[in-house]
Design a protein around this nucleic acid. Structure first.
Lengths: 348, 348
DNA sequence: TTGTACGCGTTATCAC
DNA sequence: GTGATAACGCGTACAA
């Protein structure tokens, strides 16, 4: 740190005042004379004084620091969520420190220790894919550190959650397909060890049941993951069926796009032959042709909500909020991939 | 923080040892007896002791904290860069704290103050678009805090930089167009108040000059920004020319994609009539049809390089590295948008 | 091999 | 209004 920082001691010496007076002046303490306050603040600016937060944090036993653990920062969904958190944190005077778990359990455990050691006042987390239990997060609760999960949440320990209603979103997406006339509706499902993907599958099934469409297990594909490449596998499987599906609800946008692209190569018309719905509203969903109907995952809003909830819990500890769950409303964004009566495109 | 944290004092009492012995034992100090070390560590684990980094930081005058200031976290380029930084920081035992400037000058200034107050040991920054001077970053130098810029760097103050060779990349992109037979080559340029976009324009011009192709100012478009929408404006301008360009080098992928999509609607064949090259290699460049030839901006690698450079400067302060500039090699990724002899697509 | 004593910079609590 | 003093939790020079 070198650089010989200016401290309140230095200010005190120059002004022949005690450090306590300086400290109070800098905090606009009511009992300090107006002139003193002015003098102190003036000198502070002149000498380039800057409060040492580390010392202040130690003394006050308060860090104004929020820890965030995400699988990866460079996944669009998470970077948008983090952006929302930072926004809220900044406005409330909190800093954020970010850890990546890289979807690894061990690394996630290490992350929790780092955050604990750094005396974060609250934690926002999204579980790593490989995390099977979340005891490591329990330590935050032991230390009375509020904890909010988003997206991939932990049900084993008491904690607040910000989620979207995956079931309802999937239900709506599927019903939308029904509403445009689909009756053989397929689904590309996510890993059934992860809650959100279970809900999406269930929402899909529920919509079929409600509309008295039998569930056809040949029309449900369980790829290894939800990557573009795995999506292609499912698309091929669907294409090889003796009878094509007439609509497909995909658990994310990548797989939806892979289906669109493969089907186009096979001269299967979208949405006339098969209508497609994705999930997430990634930027690419507007670029793909036809543009993809999808569920907006509201990542930024989730981040905001998580941060707001967390800060409320930090600042109202006496409220003793045990846990709270916020469900963010999603939107179904209808684009060309399900518009069978094609709209006339605006002229160029 | 409540939760009544276990401190070395608690361990000391239980073991009838002094806090210094505990402290030393926890650091494996050579003069401490093996049994003592064992006892201390055992009890520490039992009681769930965790070092209070805040106190330790204050005492050691060392925080192991790296500050990062980016325009926005949720821009793909930056989130990939941050991901690279976090990776390197984690492996070297550093934490990162992230601020968004939202491309605002005022907020960037506030960010620098936050980081200073938090005693970061080094800073990685990418200038906000609206930042015209960077005196606020000079304060880090005054405090001997190493400073590394990436992408949008500051030339006014002495600092290290990690950049890609935009000139060379643009030159290569343009020459690639020449090599496939283009002679009327257009360019969609970025804001000429930003260094990287000046370099891209210059690289484009240099490649034309080298190939004895006259520079035609009707073929250079300066949109308001490099958004998809602004790209469309340029695309329309190009389309209205009496003689179409036969190749276009775009300063980013968004504008390149807007050109591709508009031209397709106008039945202008890509790459046969007009070949397109973008810049950045955003995920969407593989999705668009035809897939986009582009320059890989190596964001993750830039982030890694910036963090490595910074940490080296933090740890070898005596080396007194004034500043260092790292230029990351870029790749030209050739895809369908410039492949005039269409490859046979792998069968499905 | 271990203990004593002090200080990092700030702030809360007395006292004057 | 202001000052002296102690304390936050830890690390280290010095002493034993």
């Amino acid at each position: 740190m070198a650089g010989s920082r200016v401290t309140i001691k230095d200010l005190a010496e120059k002004l022949n005042l005690s450090t306590s007076t300086i400290s109070r002046a800098l905090h606009n303490h009511p009992t300090i004379g107006k002139k003193t306050i002015q003098d102190v603040r003036k000198l502070a600016t002149e000498m380039g004084y800057l409060r040492n937060s580390v010392a202040s944090n130690l003394r006050r036993n308060k860090t104004n620091l929020i820890g965030i653990i995400v699988p990866r920062i460079d996944i669009n969904f998470h970077s948008r969520a983090i952006s929302g958190m930072e926004e809220v944190a900044y406005k409330s005077g909190y800093n954020i420190t970010i850890c990546q778990s890289n979807d690894s359990y061990e690394r996630e455990v290490a992350n929790t220790q780092t955050l604990l050691a750094n005396m974060v006042e609250g934690v926002i987390g999204c579980l790593a894919l490989k995390t099977k239990n979340c005891n490591h997060f329990a330590r935050f609760k032991e230390h009375d550190i509020p904890l909010v999960f988003y997206d991939r949440v932990c049900y084993e320990i008491e904690s607040s959650k910000v989620i979207i209603d995956d079931f309802e979103a999937a239900f709506r997406a599927t019903e939308h397909l029904v509403s445009i006339g689909c009756r053989r509706i397929g689904h590309i499902a996510g890993s059934q060890t992860t809650g959100i993907f279970v809900s999406r599958l269930e929402g899909y099934k529920a919509a079929l049941r409600k509309n008295k469409i039998p569930i056809n297990h040949n029309l449900i594909c369980f790829p290894e993951d939800l990557s573009y490449e795995s999506g292609l596998e499912c698309a091929r499987k669907f294409a090889r069926l003796t009878k094509l599906p007439d609509g497909i609800f995909c658990a994310n946008d990548y797989t939806a796009i892979s289906v669109i692209q493969l089907f186009k190569k096979l001269n299967i018309k979208i949405p006339q032959d098969v209508a497609i719905v994705g999930f997430s509203n990634y930027p690419v969903s507007t670029i793909i042709e036809p543009a993809l109907t999808t569920i907006d995952d509201r990542a930024f809003e989730m981040g905001q909500a998580a941060a707001k909830l967390l800060i409320r819990q930090i600042e109202d500890k006496n409220l003793n909020i045990a846990s709270e769950t916020i469900i963010i409303k999603t939107d179904l964004i209808i684009r060309e991939s399900t518009q069978r009566q094609m709209l006339i495109k605006s002229e160029i």
